[in-house]
Nucleic acid binder design. Sequence first.
DNA 1: GCTGTTTTGTCAATGTATTGTATATATTTT
DNA 2: AAAATATATACAATACATTGACAAAACAGC
Lengths: 308, 308
Amino acid sequence: MYKIGTLAKKSGYSPNLLRVWEKRYGFLQPGRGSGGQRLYPEEDLRLLLVIRRELEKGRSIGELALLGRAQLLLTAGAAAGSDAAWQPQPGSGEPGEYGAFVAPLVEAAAALDLTALTLGLDAAFSRLSPDVVVHRVIAPAMARIGGEWRQGRVTVAGEHLVSSLMEYRLRNLLEASGPRVGASVRQAPVICACFPGEEHRLGLLSVAYCLARQGLPVLYLGASLPFAALEVSINQAGAGSVWLSVTGPEILQSSRRQFINLISAYPAVRFVLGGQAVTAEDEQLSNKGCRVCPCPFPLPDGIVPLLG
Amino acid sequence: MYKIGTLAKKSGYSPNLLRVWEKRYGFLQPGRGSGGQRLYPEEDLRLLLVIRRELEKGRSIGELALLGRAQLLLTAGAAAGSDAAWQPQPGSGEPGEYGAFVAPLVEAAAALDLTALTLGLDAAFSRLSPDVVVHRVIAPAMARIGGEWRQGRVTVAGEHLVSSLMEYRLRNLLEASGPRVGASVRQAPVICACFPGEEHRLGLLSVAYCLARQGLPVLYLGASLPFAALEVSINQAGAGSVWLSVTGPEILQSSRRQFINLISAYPAVRFVLGGQAVTAEDEQLSNKGCRVCPCPFPLPDGIVPLLG
DNA sequence: GCTGTTTTGTCAATGTATTGTATATATTTT
DNA sequence: AAAATATATACAATACATTGACAAAACAGC
């Protein structure tokens, strides 16, 4: 049994909000202690985490209240919170104001701790806007994990665990945001894919999310798309622009020639090449009409002018 | 029940347009909440997705309004079954009673139609149990798409689009099911990962989902996990069993020797190797204590005894 | 071709509802 | 006494409802 402060910390919602939700919607009906204090069962924490997931997907709390407690617990994504409490260490020597969110994720990767990882992500999503989580928490966390991996403090397994879960959460955001391909106003869709041979999808997903948030119809095609398939896709979907992500310089180099040929064949399509492998001063590509965007996780502000 | 904003996001039509359609044509007649807000049932979302499909085919909204709601929903169901022109072909598995769900997915892959794909998956998930969807719809659909790809009727892009979305949906199921690592009762976790070099995750995800549904704590580590990292993970997580998935025979062959070494080093850990690359009569692996499971999407019935 | 009408999607103005947060005050726990 | 909690109320930002107007496109007739 949790008291309201404990539940608040574990779920990421303020005690005030928990009380208000109880009064307004009634899906939390905690028992009371001798002095009238609310005592919540473990299940309530799971319910709150489900609610967080659904809110992330864009639904409103009123809707969820209509669904009712049983259906929420049954159908939606449940994350079991265990005793691994997440403590927001304010200003614990971490650089930047979001270090308190980044550090637990890196530690969870090192310890292969799925629970801590989930709690850390929940904490970040509950206190920060999705954009900030993507660019100020997830991106630095992945960069840090990469660094720790090179130093042998995080294994490939830890990196896989984290990137897999983050991919899921980002995908969740992507599904929730904006109209999809085929929406009412026929707008040329944006194709998002990884360069042939590229398997890292996180940067691409963050770009896709930013684009979708701007109301653009995004066709997310995932990792390592061969140029032949990309070409067919452009024609088939009538794409107006194509975002490609590539992190390994050698991957870019090995298909560079073919890429330039592709650009030249479709002058009406706007190509954007992003990712760590890209250098901003790549004039050969720029001259061919391909925008380059070295930042693996472009800031929302940075994207608007690129597409304006 | 959806409020208008949620329905707008999910259907791709603006809240304004939904209200205007309701007034002009009346095929959406949502109930009202206590404050007068529109509340749409799940069926309305399906109807809107059908409407979009029809609009894209060139019909006008006025025409569709004349048809009426029931007929719209009905014709869509019929189209999913017959219009798809999916004929059972010898040697590629029996059509079974779920062909009506499989065919639209294959078609959506061929047409790069994200909307149809989402609609098809929604239809399957809303009418069938998750297990049936995984093993009777998704698995055959992927197999069929693979076949169409070899015949050039589906591009790599189509395959990517479908497998990416299915991965997300499966991941959703995995997140929703059962206790995770670190849950209250400390149980030895099951590590699920792809063989080194293997990038296909769908089969692995379906296995992970089946295991999680049985209440096992699953540590899902995704694609291509090197043996060194796997070994660290086993120790770090105290894994009781390890599921590995491998679809390409050449991938298995290239690391077979190392894998056998790994098995021998951990006699207390139960290893299971699954995927299309595995042959049931692989006695060399069986004798070393590694269970083999050739089916890429093991049926729920088939899994229970393996772990019992 | 041109013009008028219908269809169809969008937008603005105004009022209400929802929803997260904050305040004030009393009570309980530590 | 200090911190945490309970209750009630207030408030601002956002989302929603309603009405009416408006523009682009499709279509009819000339």
